[in-house]
Design a protein around this nucleic acid. Structure first.
Lengths: 185, 185
DNA sequence: GTCTATATGTGGATAGAC
DNA sequence: GTCTATCCACATATAGAC
């Protein structure tokens, strides 16, 4: 085996952990597994990251790049946002691992934070009208529902549905929530 | 300690398991914990139910009583369905435990089954018009999203929102999905 | 049917030589 | 920084006396 520097080893461990946690989740990934994939040993994993949970949290970050969405006309935001979420493989892995690990208080906290700034935030920014805060949170719930049905439940029919169809239908639904309700009188 | 019959012991174990699994989830509940709460020992737990996973599955049943919903006017189904879900504490416990345990293939299967007959089924029965199947599944995803936001993420603002408000807003949203879309021409 | 004692495995984390 | 060897806690599950 080639001799590596400390920083290199650290990165190997981080990369291995990222992959395994996303593929198998927190509880089904052991420190030993991570060490093996990184071609090192459990002691180094702990030395570099302290605990398994700290390492996990270190791999569970999402930086949604909001830029491509900034230029989208408000009327098309719904479908575009859905399309963005479905296309991103990172989101899927992180989302799944966090949901399934959310028994652990720290992991649940991270899930809340990501839900807040990845879903609620962008939606809230496009919302006006009465009850904007509440409506943003309900819209975020709707978004969560799609990811939940596709990735947690793996509703076979939905999984087999063409992405464009999902984007059209679900995007339209989301769009309705964003567009301020027209007063009835 | 009072001497019990085998059937009684079995029931005590089942009751203890039901409670603990719903409160703490699968991975954080040990066979020892269950035995202790049932005032017996781990050996009997296994003797009666085979494995921890089989016992878990045995406690994870939902029989949604569809009857109260049968007489609801179609136009009010959305809010009533949401109200029904939020009011039922059983659903919350089962849903949470299944979602968090869905790393295990068998548990995921059970989640799929319950999603199918508790959410998709009733919705599909009320749907007509084009793409009824797909729309039922999307509506089920929307429902899942509410439970997800409330119980998995525990969005604090949503949790603090009066149930009637959630029922009104989210119920209306669901209702839109059920009501067949009016042709635009 | 019931229980004590234990087999057996796996996990995270650490000690200490190099 | 790295690695071997190991500690220790805890899990599920079983053996076998009663």
């Amino acid at each position: 085996m080639v001799r590596r520097t400390g920083a290199e080893t650290r990165e190997e461990i981080h990369a291995a952990a990222t992959r395994l946690f996303r593929e198998r989740g927190y509880s089904r990934t052991s420190v030993r597994d991570i060490a093996a994939l990184a071609e090192t040993n459990p002691a180094l994993v702990i030395r570099h990251f302290g605990t398994k949970e700290l390492l996990f949290l270190d791999t569970m970050h999402l930086t949604i790049d909001d830029e491509p969405l900034l230029n989208v006309p408000p009327a098309e935001f719904g479908p575009r946002f859905v399309a963005r979420l479905l296309a991103d493989d990172d989101i899927r892995g992180v989302y799944l691992a966090l949901v399934r690990g959310s028994n652990e208080p720290q992991i649940k906290e991270r899930l809340q934070a990501i839900h807040e700034h990845t879903f609620v935030g962008p939606l809230r920014a496009r919302l006006t009208g009465p009850d904007a805060d509440l409506r943003a949170r309900l819209a975020a719930a709707v978004i969560g529902g799609l990811l939940y049905a596709l990735w947690v439940v793996s509703d076979e029919q939905l999984v087999a549905t063409a992405p464009e169809t999902l984007i059209t239908h679900y995007g339209a639904l989301l769009q309705q929530l964003i567009t301020p309700p027209t007063p009835t009188s």
